[in-house]
Nucleic acid binder design. Structure first.
Lengths: 227, 227
DNA sequence: CTAAATTTGTCCGTATGTATT
DNA sequence: AAATACATACGGACAAATTTA
């Protein structure tokens, strides 16, 4: 893992606190030493980061008292920090790890909240994927199947999480890997795995659904990354 | 759950496919009937949605052939669909459900990827939260603790998911509920639960860590929502 | 009012990894 | 390929200002 600029975590946490409104104008934020401890970085580094915010007049520091959030311009930071969130830089390996951790959890919610209409939608996607003539068409219905599953959780936050994963999946590096890894027999296997998952969801069999999800993802990872 | 406009899911799926680049210029998207089936909506509704995209010249339809992605202006849609993702409208109940599903999964990754430096950071946050004089200061360190946990997964996607949750947590409705629900004795209980979790993480005891997470979240939900 | 504790400001020496010569 | 210079981060120490007991 490459050594990223060492104050980055602190910066993101500060932005987060600004954005969420937890740190409002006039609020006294933790001391330099406390932040240094909490983020496992030296006070020198904390000071460098805070100096950046001070230059932009987002905070002010007074000796002997503490560090305070600027009183009049809390909107500047909103403009300054807002525009990320949608593009998450990640590697295929990281992505697969996250999917293996998160998707079984999503499946659990689907079992609790999914309706027969949702399961019907999933089956339509399976059927269309199976009948797809081209790889493009297959992936299209594969994507729609995943979308249908995420929506069956009936939870806006879960859907947002799924979109996050899916966006990362649309990245370049990933597309390259996939193109080379999806052979006709693997496609058949994927289709069977999808069917198994949808069936387990409809039966509300948590064990089976989780197993199917993990087995499928492990399969994809093996084909994609070789382990 | 409120009934959202019935073509919304389809619109979001289409935007998603544009954004991710899965549907490039000239691509033939699924037939109206297929979409109608896949999304559990009538073909009339599908046509209404598609008409919206056709008006904006993002797709073109030719009778007897299919619906095609516009050839020259795929950037328009990017501008048109990009700016959400950061603000997810959700209710406290939905949020708690999602947290109960996702956070145990995150915990699992922390156990695999966390380092002793990460666990030290968490303990610093616990200590500072315990020493906090005001409720504000307590919540500040509580937030930093959660951030430390999310970062200990050492996965950019997981961190993004956590930020999504945290953003939703910063919403108005949530703040109101919390203010009224955090009494001194509850705060003490939360602190103990946090300690238990961090200890389990450091010992890499998956069972204990998951139990601690679920117990804590269930506790928070009961205090917040009454069930 | 005094004194101790806390917090930011400043400087120094060291270690480590990177780029250049 | 080796040696040098540079940038970055760390930890410690002390001064100055403020808060608190």
């Amino acid at each position: 893992m490459r050594q990223e600029r060492s104050g980055a975590a602190l910066e993101e946490a500060i932005d987060e606190n600004f954005r969420s409104g937890r740190w409002r104008a006039g609020h006294r934020i933790p001391t330099e030493r406390a932040l240094s401890e909490a983020f496992g970085i030296s006070r020198t580094t904390v000071r460098r980061v805070l100096a950046g915010y001070k230059d932009r007049r987002l905070i002010s520091q007074v000796v002997g008292s503490g560090t305070y959030v600027g009183t009049d311009l809390p909107r500047l930071l909103q403009a300054a920090t807002a525009p990320d969130a949608s593009e998450v830089a990640t590697s295929p390996a990281e992505l697969m790890e996250a999917r293996l951790a998160l998707e079984p959890a999503i499946v659990q919610m689907v079992i609790r909240a999914g309706t027969s209409v949702d399961f019907d939608r999933m089956e339509v996607c399976c059927r269309n994927a199976e009948n797809a003539a081209t790889l493009e068409a297959f992936e299209q219905w594969d994507g729609l199947l995943h979308e249908a599953i995420a929506e069956a959780a009936h939870n806006a936050l879960i859907l947002a999480v799924f979109r996050l994963i899916n966006n990362a999946r649309g990245q370049e590096e990933w597309g390259m890997l996939k193109k080379r890894s999806v052979t006709p027999e693997r496609r058949l296997a994927y289709q069977a795995e999808h069917r198994t998952l949808v069936r387990a969801l409809r039966m509300r069999d948590l064990e089976a659904a989780r197993d199917a999800t993990q087995a499928h993802l492990a399969h994809v990872r093996r084909n994609l990354l070789g382990y």
